[in-house]
C-alpha cells in the first residue's frame, strides 16, 4: 500500500497531537520512498529532539517499515511561530 501525505498527516495529528503538519514526498531524488515532515505539537514541549523524533517514529512505526528515507523537523507551537516569523 502506498503511503500518502494525507495518511501521514492524519496519523501524526491523532498520534502526537500535532496542530500543524507539513508532509512532502521527496521520492523523486535520493534513496527511495522518502518523506519530509514538519510536525508542530504542544506535546513536544520540554522534550529533547531525540525524544520528539522518537515520538514521531513510534507513531509512524508501521509506515516507516516501507519508508526508506524520512526527514523530520519537530517543533513546539512556540518554536513554529518563531520559525514562521523568520
Amino acid at each position: 500500500m502506498a503511503i500518502t501525505a494525507d495518511h501521514v498527516r492524519n496519523k501524526l495529528t491523532t498520534g502526537v497531537g500535532a496542530v500543524h503538519v507539513e508532509v512532502e514526498d521527496t521520492t523523486a531524488n535520493r534513496c527511495a520512498t522518502s518523506f519530509k515532515v514538519l510536525v508542530v505539537s504542544p506535546e513536544f514541549e520540554g522534550k529533547t529532539l531525540l525524544q520528539r523524533q522518537r515520538m514521531v517514529n513510534s507513531c509512524l512505526s508501521e509506515e516507516l517499515k516501507d519508508i526508506h528515507a524520512f526527514e523530520q523537523k519537530t517543533l513546539t507551537p512556540e518554536q513554529w511561530e518563531k520559525h514562521k516569523a523568520q
Binding site: 531525540l50 523524533q53 517514529n57 526527514e71
Partner: peptide
Amino acid sequence: SNWPTIPQVFFNGEFVGGCDILLQM
C-alpha cells in the same frame, strides 16, 4: 538503538540521533 533509519550517530556510546538531529544540533 530503536531507531528506524541510517545514518546513526553515537557519542561516548550514547545514541545521539540521525541526520536531522545532528543537523539541528
